[in-house]
Amino acid sequence: MKGERIYVEHPRDCSARMNALHHIYFDIAQDEYVNCLNVEATDTSGMHEGEKSELYRKATEHGIKAIVFSSMCVESAINNYAGTQLGDKYAQQHLDKLNVQSKWVVIPKLVCGRSIDKSGPAFNALGKLIKARNELVHNKSKELNPANPNLKTILEKSDQDFKIGFESSLKALYLLRMEMDYVLGQTHNPIGTMDPAFTWIDIPDQVKGIYDKCKALVLKKYS
């Protein structure tokens, strides 16, 4: 993120591959994150309850898409990296059944002896993202008792849990893209560098604050 080239030797410097969709998933996730923020920023002062409810539903829809496509992005990226550097057959036979977090630890270690810091902000955000993704993909409804005196607290906690997952989605993508520059170098960053010295990036105004905070965290960690 400082504009300085970091090179880590890999078995392969380039390859031709098909169906590598992580860059598209990233764009969709970022767009949906911004869409959610835009809906949440809507002035509801003149709306009736039905309109507010519909707005809440739309925000939730965008939030779900941001979480799901963020998780698809991180899994697609590390799978592509494994196939590129270790071979598709090896990756499928020996690595395919690892959970996503484990893949981000194990696969770079196998490739070049380096790995993500499990105590760092990127790995932490990744864990929250995967937890949120699993709760959505393996969704289970729960019985609700309207007479429960703790009903308000229960509903507020549910909203807060979703908010944590949503906020972790884009944060995980930014932090992984930034931290992996230092771990594996810009050339072999599985999810793609965000260093403007090596690529063109377009950060929407609505999420520049998140981007700047993530950048500050990573620069502090590797200063």
Rank of each mutant, 00 (worst) to 15 (best):
E4S: 06
R5G: 01
Y7C: 00
Y7R: 10
V8I: 15
P11V: 04
D13H: 03
C14P: 00
M18P: 00
M18S: 09
M18R: 05
I24Y: 02
I24G: 05
Q30K: 10
D31Q: 09
Y33K: 00
Y33A: 01
V34A: 04
C36H: 06
V39M: 03
V39Q: 08
E49S: 08
E51R: 08
K52H: 02
S53E: 12
A59Y: 05
T60N: 09
T60W: 07
H62W: 12
G63T: 10
I64Y: 07
I64F: 04
A66T: 03
V68H: 05
F69C: 06
S71V: 00
M72N: 07
S76K: 03
Y81V: 06
T84E: 15
G87F: 09
K89N: 11
Q92P: 02
Q93M: 13
H94A: 07
H94M: 07
L95A: 14
K97W: 08
K97E: 13
N99W: 06
N99M: 03
Q101A: 13
V105S: 13
C112S: 15
C112F: 06
R114K: 15
R114I: 07
S115T: 15
I116W: 09
D117H: 14
D117S: 14
S119K: 15
S119G: 12
G120S: 06
G120Q: 02
F123L: 03
F123R: 05
A125D: 00
A125G: 00
A132S: 12
R133A: 07
E135H: 12
E135F: 07
V137W: 05
V137Y: 08
H138C: 07
N139A: 14
N139Q: 15
K140W: 10
S141K: 14
E143H: 14
E143G: 15
N150V: 04
K152R: 11
T153S: 13
L155K: 12
E156H: 10
Q160T: 13
F162G: 12
I164A: 12
G165M: 06
G165K: 08
K171D: 12
K171G: 04
K171S: 13
A172L: 08
L176P: 04
R177F: 11
R177Q: 14
E179K: 01
M180C: 03
D181E: 13
Y182E: 05
Q186I: 01
T187S: 08
H188L: 02
G192N: 09
T193V: 04
P196M: 04
W200L: 11
I201F: 01
I201V: 04
I203A: 02
I203R: 05
I203N: 04
Q206G: 00
Y211H: 13
D212W: 02
K213G: 00
K213S: 09
C214E: 01
K220M: 05
S223V: 01
S223E: 14
S223L: 03
